[in-house]
Amino acid sequence: MNLTEIAKVKSKYKEPIGPDKMKKTESIIEVKEEFEDGLYGIEEHEYLQVLFYFHKSEGYDLISKRRIGGEKGLFASRSPRRASGIGITTVELLKREGNKLYVYGLDAIDGTPVVDIKPYASFMDEASISLQKNNPRYKIEKMIRYQNIDELLLKAGEFHGHYCPFLALGVLAAADALKRMQKADAGMEKLLAVVETNSCFSDGIQVVSGATFANNALIYRDLGKTAVTFVSREGGNLRYYLKNDKFLEKDYTEAKELFEKVVARREGSRAEEKKLKELWKKIAFEIIEEDIAKYFKVERDIEIEVPDYAPIFEDKYCQECGEKIMAVKAVEKENQDYCKKCAQAEYIQLDGSGLTVKKFD
C-alpha cells in the first residue's frame, strides 16, 4: 500500500502537546503545487476532514492507558501511536490563499505530512445521530466527560442568543459540577439545579446541566445571588457562589463601561452594541480557560431543602373563556371555576426584575 503526501502542515507547535490545546489554534496546510488544482471549489465548504501521517510517532500498543483514566484498546482510543500511523481530524476552513489553506482545529504538529483532504458533510459523517435519538443529550454529556468547555459555551450561545461573561460562568460552574458529581440526567428530575438569579448565568446552567423550568429540574430562588446548587436526589450536592464579583471592573474596564452605556442605560449606538458583543465574546472564551477556583467558592453537601417530584395535576376549564387550566391554578367563584385572567386575580410573573406579583384589571 502506498500513501501519497499531498501537503504539509505549518504550525507553531514543533512537538506534540495535548490535542485540546492544539485544536484551539490556527494552522496552515500547504498543498504541493502539483495538487493545487484539486482545491478548486473548496472555499464553498466551512469544514474539512484532514488525513495525515504521524511521522514522529513510533510503535504502538494494542492496549494502553487513557488520559482520563483506565485502559482501552488501540482501535477504541484516540492515541496518536497507531498501527497504520494515520490520523484524521475535522477542521474549520478559515480561508484559502492559492495553495495554502488556513484552518482552525488541526491537532497536527509542524511538518506533518497530509495524505488527503475532503469536505466534511454532516449528513454523511455525523455518527452520533442515532445515538442522539436514544439520548438527546449525548453530545453535551460527551463534552462534559471530556471537559470540552469551549464547545459547551458554543451550545449555550445557540440557546442564549449571544456570548457574555455570565453565560460563560454558568457553563463553567455546571461543567465542573457534573464532572465532580459524575451525574447525567434525562430530564427526569433526578439531578436538580437550584439557581439564585435569573441572569445570563442561569442559561449557562440550563444548557449544560439539562435542568429546565419545563422538566421541573430547574428550581428558581429569587435571592439575587450569582449562585447555583446542584442536587442529586440520590444524595450529595455542590453549591457554586461567584466570589470574584468585581472581575469586570478590575480586568475588563472597557467592556464594563460599554455595558453600562449600551445595556444599563440603553444609550449606546449600533456600533457600540456591536463592540460590546465582540468584547463579551472574547471575555467569555477567556473565562472558560480559567480554573474554577478563580471565580467560585465551592461548597459540598450544604443544608438545602429538596422539593418533591413535580405532581401531575388534574385539569379544569374556565367557565368564561373555556380554556383548559391546571386545577390548582383555577379560581373558584360561586362554585364555578375560572382562570386567573377571567377572575381578575393576582398571579406571579418571572421577568427581568425577578418574581413579581401582578393582577389582571
Rank of each mutant, 00 (worst) to 15 (best):
Y102G: 12
G161R: 08
Y240H: 03
D315T: 15
E278V: 05
Y317I: 15
G70H: 03
F230D: 02
L48T: 07
N244G: 11
L101N: 02
A293S: 15
A343L: 03
K359H: 06
R96H: 02
M1L: 05
E34Q: 12
D308E: 13
A168E: 10
C200M: 03
I42E: 10
R270T: 15
S77W: 05
G105K: 09
F230H: 00
A76R: 11
E267F: 04
I292R: 04
K275I: 06
N198K: 07
S57L: 04
C318Y: 02
E260L: 15
Y104K: 10
L355F: 12
D150L: 00
D222N: 07
E286V: 06
Y102S: 10
M188I: 08
G85K: 04
D110Y: 12
T356S: 09
E15N: 15
R300D: 08
I86V: 14
K139N: 12
E272W: 05
R233A: 02
S130Y: 10
D185I: 00
I149T: 11
E34C: 05
E332W: 03
R82W: 06
I312C: 09
L350Y: 03
E189A: 04
I140W: 01
I6W: 00
G170F: 00
Y40Q: 14
A121L: 14
H45W: 12
M1T: 15
L191S: 01
A293Q: 14
A7Y: 05
G204N: 07
G161F: 05
L242P: 03
G235D: 06
I149P: 04
G98V: 06
R233H: 04
L152S: 03
R66Q: 08
E151H: 08
D291V: 11
V208N: 01
E257D: 11
I6R: 02
K14M: 13
Q49V: 15
R233N: 00
K21G: 06
I29V: 15
E305R: 00
N135C: 13
D308C: 01
F123V: 15
A227N: 04
F313M: 10
D116A: 15
I219E: 00
E346G: 04
L242R: 01
W280A: 11
G85Q: 03
A127L: 12
D150V: 06
V50L: 14
D116Y: 02
L192P: 00
K118Q: 08
G18L: 10
G268W: 05
S79N: 08
I117V: 06
A76V: 14
D337E: 13
K225T: 07
K95A: 13
T226G: 07
A175E: 05
K282Q: 13
L223I: 10
D291L: 06
I28G: 00
E33G: 13
Q344N: 12
K359Y: 09
Y240P: 01
Y317L: 10
E290D: 14
F213P: 03
R78G: 09
S130Q: 09
